[in-house]
């Protein structure tokens, strides 16, 4: 059975390989009459663990999803001359430093990286490679793999956000948010609405390459409206207006407002909620396993 044993071409078919007695026992069919135990819970935990390991084994995903937001914020805060300037002439924004004002943008970046880049690409790859189909031949089925994927991505996202804010507070001394609860609510809705968008990509993209392409396009458009390249307050009025209707644009504006203590950003939160409420069921409905 050694895969390295050379066999000359045209050699006679060798006798049946000896099967270790232990192995034979391993193969004997299980008695399937007496017991029916649900293996579901253990399987989901195992799947989540495996997905987490696979995630950790992909260095580029690990870097961009987990570390890049914190790194970007820290480097900009340390290097850029504008970091300590007032964020904007607007009296409401003049009280905070520019780097504090940029922090919600970095959080939006963290959400976008996982929800629009990592998640749809992995799911579409699993579909294209037959991973989901293979699972559908087991008692457990493929749905739990998606749950495991979402769990791993959400955990990544929470860690990435904590790293970014932590680095901001410790290294850059950014101001703490005024309305912490509203910031958290806005972050949660940002996650839900952007995952809805990413799930639509995962559901509709016919191939892994397509998922990657669509995801990256949405990603960069979203980053633009989230103010990653140019903070939203510095953008033309029309861009700010459009941004308000996109998940990550609304997320940035809502988190910024809550951070500096502006009035409750109800419209922005509602926009994100609508994206989530419309997008997630549509994605679930359109999702194809094979």
């Amino acid at each position: 059975m050694s895969p390295t044993t050379p066999v000359p071409a045209g050699a006679p078919v060798p006798p049946r390989a000896p099967v270790p007695a232990r192995g034979r026992g391993a193969l004997a069919p299980a008695p399937h009459d007496a017991r029916r135990r649900a293996a579901g819970g253990g399987a989901l935990a195992r799947m989540t663990l495996v997905e987490a390991r696979l995630f950790l084994r992909d260095p580029s995903v690990l870097f961009f999803a987990l570390l890049f937001p914190a790194l970007l914020l820290t480097v900009l805060g340390l290097v850029m001359p504008w970091a300590d300037q007032p964020y904007d002439d607007d009296p409401a924004l003049a009280g905070i430093s520019a780097i504090t004002g940029y922090t919600p943008t970095v959080l939006s970046l963290a959400v976008g990286t996982v929800a629009l880049s990592t998640f749809p690409a992995v799911v579409a790859t699993y579909r294209q490679r037959g991973v989901l189909r293979r699972l559908s031949t087991t008692p457990v089925g493929p749905a739990r793999l998606l749950v495991a994927q979402v769990a791993v991505n959400l955990a990544t996202l929470v860690v990435a956000a904590l790293l970014a804010v932590g680095a901001g507070v410790v290294v850059l001394g950014i101001a703490s948010p005024v309305h912490v609860g509203t910031v958290l609510l806005a972050f949660l809705l940002a996650v839900l609405s952007t995952f809805a968008l990413g799930s639509l990509v995962a559901a509709l993209a016919p191939t892994a390459a397509a998922a990657n392409g669509w995801g990256m396009t949405l990603y960069f458009v979203s980053l633009f409206f989230a103010g990653v390249w140019l903070p939203l307050p510095l953008m033309p009025e029309v861009v700010q207006t459009v941004a308000r209707w996109t998940p990550l644009g609304a997320a940035t504006q809502a988190m910024t407002a809550a951070w500096v203590g502006q009035p409750f950003p109800g419209t922005h939160l509602l926009v994100m909620a609508v994206w989530a409420v419309l997008g997630l069921p549509v994605a679930v409905r359109l999702f194809r396993w094979t």
């Binding site: 270790p20 299980a30 293996a39 253990g42």
Partner: peptide, 12 residues
């Protein structure tokens, strides 16, 4: 982990 009464993976 998907099955109620699986074979020993090492044996397989």
């Amino acid at each position: 982990s998907f099955y109620a009464d699986p074979a020993d993976p090492a044996d397989l």
